[in-house]
Computed example of a mutant assay.
Amino acid sequence: MTETINVAVFGAGRIGNIHADNVAQHPHACLQYVVDVHEPSAAQLAARHAAQVASVEQVLADPGIGAVVIGSSTDTHADLIQRSAAAGKAIFCEKPVDLDVQRARACAEAVRKAGVTCMIGFQRRFDPTFAALKGRLDAGEIGEPEMLVVTSRDPAPPPASYIARSGGVFKDMLIHDFDIFRWILGGETVSVHATGGSPGLPEVAAAGDISHAAVTLRTRAGSLCQINTSRRAAYGYDQRFEVLGSKGLLQAGNVRPTQVVAWGADHIASDKPEAFFLERYRAAYALEIAHFFDALTHGTQVRTTIEDGIKALELAELATQSWREGRAVECSV
């Protein structure tokens, strides 16, 4: 009989709620504690799952807690990773590890030293459509991959107050797409060229960021990736990519609330893409948490490690540098 893993969730906001719900549904996990600086939010989430509100110190001092799920604000991730590792807890942490590459590397060292499992939340690898494409690519259906084109657009920009502390579009939004690039094409990255602006969104520029960006990456093997992103897509949350290979093309498109298409004399209409990331990646969030606890149960390696988190952050840092300096940046990542 498999032993149940007792869990604490840090963060009771949008993503904390998603992770807590998925933890509660896993047959080998038991949600014991919820931690959040906003106590009413923590209390509400804890009550939903018959858990307790606790402090960070209480969680880390409890020998019965086997794993923590970190879904709190980005500026808390590194500290919680390091403290949880030192306490011997297995760790699932939302991206990014931190906004600073050196501090992220210090987290990886803490995890290595403690010998604990640490998984970073790159949920797009667990999306059923994206994962199916990856499986067919690995099976050789289109030969050797030569070019990846990623479209990643939000329906509307977040508040300027959020943008100002987000780390910028490359670390906040595109870090997922940099992980997709590494997952799909693999190999060493030797060049990053990023450009962008804020057409029609001066408030984003005023916050020190850009709303629209295009990034080109090249691997040592010569494969190319082009990522285009926008903080505003009036038609919905646009998440898709395609891979061109030596023998063909594989495409992974948007997910819609329904697949019904209406055909009429004047137009053909379908549902717009899902509203935002919580809806679009609902299944992926459940699958990644299931994978985390399955890996802990069976003693296997997680698919998205803290090293993956660091590599994606390094690419985001290089893209930021390229945009600011207005040139391609040669690298070895």
Rank of each mutant, 00 (worst) to 15 (best):
R136M: 11
V56Q: 11
R165P: 12
G187N: 07
A114I: 10
P63S: 07
I289G: 06
L31R: 03
T216W: 05
K272A: 15
L133R: 12
H193L: 06
V149F: 02
I268T: 14
D21E: 13
E242L: 15
G299R: 04
T117I: 11
S73P: 14
F170Q: 10
D75E: 12
V261A: 09
G236R: 08
F293P: 05
P273G: 08
H28P: 01
S270N: 12
M1G: 11
A156D: 13
I289Y: 00
D308Y: 02
Q259G: 14
F276S: 15
A283M: 00
F241E: 12
N17Q: 15
A12K: 04
R324L: 01
S223V: 03
Q259D: 15
L278P: 03
N6D: 14
A78E: 09
A328C: 00
G121K: 09
F277L: 06
I184Y: 08
G121W: 06
R125Y: 14
Q102Y: 00
T74W: 00
E314G: 09
R153C: 14
S246P: 03
D62E: 07
N17A: 15
R48H: 08
V68G: 03
F170K: 07
C331P: 08
V333Q: 02
D79W: 00
T195Y: 00
A54T: 11
A90S: 12
D62I: 08
V56K: 09
E144Q: 13
V169A: 10
E144M: 07
V116H: 10
E307A: 12
V329Y: 00
V333S: 02
H298M: 00
D209I: 05
R280S: 12
G245Y: 09
A265W: 08
V149C: 10
E242S: 15
S198V: 11
E203Y: 04
N228E: 09
V204A: 02
T76M: 11
S166W: 02
D271R: 10
D172S: 15
P155Y: 09
S73R: 15
K134D: 11
A295V: 01
A12N: 04
F126T: 10
G66N: 07
R165T: 15
C93Y: 03
T2V: 09
E57R: 07
D98H: 13
K311E: 14
M1T: 12
G326W: 01
T151V: 15
I306Q: 08
A86V: 12
A12S: 05
F122E: 09
G167T: 07
D271M: 10
I180E: 11
R14C: 08
E3W: 00
A8V: 06
F126W: 10
I180L: 12
V97N: 03
E39P: 06
F241W: 13
H26S: 04
A233W: 11
N22F: 09
E141R: 13
I120F: 03
A234N: 13
S270Y: 08
A286D: 02
R303C: 04
G222Y: 02
V261S: 08
G13E: 06
R303I: 01
V23Y: 01
P159A: 06
A207M: 08
V260M: 12
T195M: 05
G253P: 07
R124Q: 14
A51C: 05
V260F: 07
P96Y: 09
L217A: 01
S332Q: 04
D138A: 14
C107A: 14
S246H: 01
R153Q: 14
A67N: 06
G186I: 14
G11C: 08
L99Q: 13
A8W: 01
P63V: 05
P145H: 05
F170I: 11
A87M: 04
D36G: 10
E307N: 10
